[in-house]
Amino acid sequence: MSEQQPLVRAVNVIKDFGATRVLHGIDLEVHRGEVVCLLGPSGSGKTTFLRLINQLESLTGGRIWVDGELIGFEERRGRLHVRKDADIARQRSRIGMVFQRFNLFPHMTALENVVEAPVHVRGVRPSRAREEARRLLDLVGLAERADFYPSQLSGGQQQRVAIARALAMEPELMLFDEPTSALDPELVGEVLAVMRDLARDGMTMVVVTHEMSFAREVADRVVFMDAGVVVEEGAPEQVLRRPRHERTQAFLARVRREEQAAEERISAELEQLGE
């Protein structure tokens, strides 16, 4: 039963910010071990949807289940009851999240960042947690940076520490919110490489990204969102190469044009330097 049950099941998810409706009834299922990339123009609601899964925003309508458990609410005698703070914290602790702006704790070293939650939330012995943290930092290729503060690390290194920090809670689901958007172009690769490894090891991942090549290579499924609705979803091959929907085609064409323009700009600059 639990094999077939999706890890994430979102039904008719609606979100309002004040009078503006940003999500108009999203349905999505993510199965265990699956990597799902959410694509779409900015303002399409993909980040908001991701934050709803982890209750960083509160639902306006619809339901989200993670591992069969209703997120944020409890159903008792036919009524929804808002979950208590401690219960929400417990639900979040099983979901790892990586932010666009890393959000490492600046007053702690890389190692302390990774150790923090296991020790203070799950009550792991500090010595045991440090051991595990070193293993995770090694996994993301930062074993020798363990005692550095975030301000002493590059953006790519900070984001890799952030991934290790999330993994330290042994989550069953990882959410990535534009993990490479705040990085200099030459640092994007190292973060994507870590994410690729994670996907290969069978981690269930929902990734909001603008990296088309990552989506094409790593995703099992691609979901294209626009203006608060899912426009089209399917295998990356199909959605990215042969999009059926007009809006998807327009978006992909624009991304391709931007990539081309960037390439031309770079080659023009190189030529100028050559002169």
Binding site: Q55, A89, R92, L104
Partner: peptide, 9 residues
């Protein structure tokens, strides 16, 4: 947000 996402109350 980062602390909450880690399950910290």
């Amino acid at each position: 947000e980062a602390a909450q996402a880690l399950g910290m109350p």
